[in-house]
Write a protein that binds this DNA or RNA. Sequence first.
DNA 1: CGGAATCCTTAAAGATACTG
DNA 2: CAGTATCTTTAAGGATTCCG
Lengths: 117, 117
Amino acid sequence: MKKYNIPVEASLEVIGGKWKVVILCHLIKSKRRTSELKRLMPGITQKMLTQQLRELEADGVINRIIYNQVPPKVEYELTEYGWSLKEPLDMLCAWGEQHIEKTYPDKSEVLLEGEEV
Amino acid sequence: MKKYNIPVEASLEVIGGKWKVVILCHLIKSKRRTSELKRLMPGITQKMLTQQLRELEADGVINRIIYNQVPPKVEYELTEYGWSLKEPLDMLCAWGEQHIEKTYPDKSEVLLEGEEV
DNA sequence: CGGAATCCTTAAAGATACTG
DNA sequence: CAGTATCTTTAAGGATTCCG
């Protein structure tokens, strides 16, 4: 018998991992292969990436697409069910953008994706 | 210089803790005192509760209201800024409800807040 | 009642090496 | 390129005790 003290716990079981929200946000923008995800998340290790991807797959929110070729090629994409997370995640991303602006009104104190020094 | 590879990382800094989303969802519904939060989250320890509350306070999303009386009374509520998290969190809660229904179509396999055996 | 402080246990995460 | 397997390290979290 599974027990939830509050329904949002069920959401956290799926997207609560340290990197899962980030991975899903990337996959909202585009289907990605493993090496691309690694490049987009410089802080993650190979091991963690694989682990989080497996769990997301097990929860039915992403698909793993294997191309039988050498060298290997694997792509990850949201499942139809995974796309139901788009709205919550988009709102969270938007909040993050606003939070950065609020926390660092001086843009010289923060570095965003793709920016260089 | 703070660095974000993707803006949603800023959101996770604030709500990424293990219990933070749950705490915030409770505070969306109502201002709560410490003992109430502990009752609402049977799995959390005193230490973790205090810790997560302190961090949320430091991030400016909740207020700590101290009543100078014996025995002590402390209440927590969302700050004005904290209320800006309502929309993302509400969507996440709604997703969790749907996810529970999808995962346990047989309602006898799941126990929700307030339900008894 | 709310919380600080302590000690202690593990589970998460990092590093490294190896394989198809 | 993508992934597995180990081993090590670290930090998160739990249990307990004491205090205003």
